[in-house]
Amino acid sequence: MKRSAGKYGWRQIAAALTAVWLLGSCASSVYADDKIAREPELSIIVRSSSSSMLFSRLEIDSPSLLRELRAARAETAGRTPFFPDIEVEWRPDSRSRVYRLDHTGHLLSPETNHRLPLPNSAAARMLAYARILRNRHYGKLVPWSEARRLVARKSIFTLTDLESGLSFRVQRRAGSSHADVQPLSKEDSATMKRIYGGRWSWQRRAVLVGTASHRLAASMNGMPHGGDGIPDNGFNGHFCVHFLDSTSHRSETPDWGHQLRVHQAAGSLSRYFSSSPPLTLALSFVEALNSKDTDMLALLREQAPQASFQALDSFLNELESIAVRGKREARPDAPSSQEDERLSAEIELPVRIRRIEGRSVDAKLRFSFEKSSIGSSWRLIGVSSNVPGISF
């Protein structure tokens, strides 16, 4: 599902930012001085994952920026950090080229491992365009204390799955620590079931909550349970929608799996990981394994040594499910004073692994972390297991 953000020249940046803010959750397109009907030579695309069917495109009409691109000379990139959700399409001739945008505004080629360095002014413009589109694509990260007023009880709103792009209508029926909602009709229930591959599931998914004036970042599960209040909607019960810092019914701490998807829906997952302590990163790795989210796994091991995780693909091919055993009532994203002063850390998690052929095994996963200096971000450098045959 494509959501176009129109064409912009550099002079329209300020106007475009205003237009994006005014549109809020509206899905219509924005156009500024659109005088060119031909296929755009330069576009920026935002999608939350490599397989996401929901994406937003910004067509850039800037002769000066195109001149800078044509004048750029490729150089070896090395391991340069880039925005995993941003693609840049450039058509200098009949062939389309796809690049990534690094954190300084330069273009990276994943095919050749080369970089196109741009002048500082041009790089700043690329970052500004990307910022416009990301703000347009994702939901706003708001705490449950605010979200519960924006989606009040008995209110009707739309949920859009960030991966499939499918949308359906729901009504909030109850919920004090998160929103308990129900599909409005049989058609809405059928769409929700399509999102989950034709069967109900407890799997958490990143969603956008759309109201008349807001687009919020949230996470949902897909399993009917509990009370029912809308007859003949094809859904026996309700399901849960979580927001930032919301909790489940029987816990005073946020569900870390839902919190991951909330940040994913806000486009803030990378920032969330960069400020997280080792325990959060370890739990996130297990959650990404269980959902086979290869994009999240790539983000978590982005700074790991190149020799690490060579057996990860084969492990995923054999995996049916994986879950942490036991309950944790402490917030996993609360760093300890000891972690603030250390430059390395080890986390051990007891897990239950179920293989596709049906066999289950209990194991302990040991996660190794390090950081370059006090105050810098933790990075995952390796994962090992105490069970032979389980390797990454």
Rank of each mutant, 00 (worst) to 15 (best):
G9L: 02
G9S: 14
G9M: 01
W10A: 03
R11M: 10
Q12V: 04
A15K: 12
A32K: 06
D34R: 13
I36E: 14
R38I: 00
R38M: 03
P40G: 12
E41T: 09
S43Y: 07
I45D: 10
V46F: 06
R47Q: 14
S49Q: 05
L58T: 03
E59A: 15
E59C: 15
I60G: 04
D61H: 09
S62Q: 09
S64Q: 13
R67Q: 12
R73A: 09
T76L: 00
R79N: 15
E87Q: 11
R97W: 10
G105S: 02
H106S: 06
T112M: 00
P119K: 04
P119I: 11
A128K: 14
I132F: 05
R134L: 07
N135A: 06
H137G: 07
V142M: 07
S145G: 05
R148L: 03
R148D: 02
S155I: 05
I156L: 10
T158L: 14
T160Q: 15
L162P: 01
E163K: 07
L166T: 03
V170W: 10
R172A: 07
A174H: 12
A174Y: 12
D180G: 06
L184G: 03
L184P: 07
K186C: 02
S189P: 09
K193M: 14
R194D: 14
R194E: 15
I195E: 04
I195V: 15
I195M: 11
W200T: 12
W202G: 11
W202N: 00
Q203R: 15
R204D: 10
V207N: 01
T211D: 11
A212K: 10
A212P: 04
S213C: 06
A218G: 10
H225L: 02
G227S: 15
G227N: 14
G229R: 13
G237D: 06
V241S: 13
H242N: 15
H242S: 13
H242K: 13
S248Q: 08
S248V: 08
S248T: 15
S251E: 08
T253Q: 11
G257Y: 04
H258W: 03
Q259A: 10
A265Q: 01
A266K: 07
A266R: 10
S270N: 11
Y272K: 13
Y272W: 15
S275T: 08
F285V: 01
A288H: 04
D295Y: 08
A298V: 07
A298H: 07
R301Y: 02
Q303F: 12
P305M: 09
Q306C: 00
A307Q: 14
F309I: 04
F309K: 07
A311G: 06
L312F: 05
S314Y: 03
L316N: 06
E320I: 07
S321V: 03
V324W: 00
V324T: 12
V324I: 12
A330M: 01
D333W: 12
S337H: 10
S337C: 02
E339C: 04
D340K: 09
L343W: 00
L343N: 04
S344Q: 04
S344V: 13
A345T: 05
I347A: 00
E348I: 13
P350H: 09
V351N: 08
R354E: 15
R359P: 01
K364D: 04
L365V: 14
S368Q: 14
F369D: 04
W378F: 00
S385K: 07
S385D: 06
P388I: 10
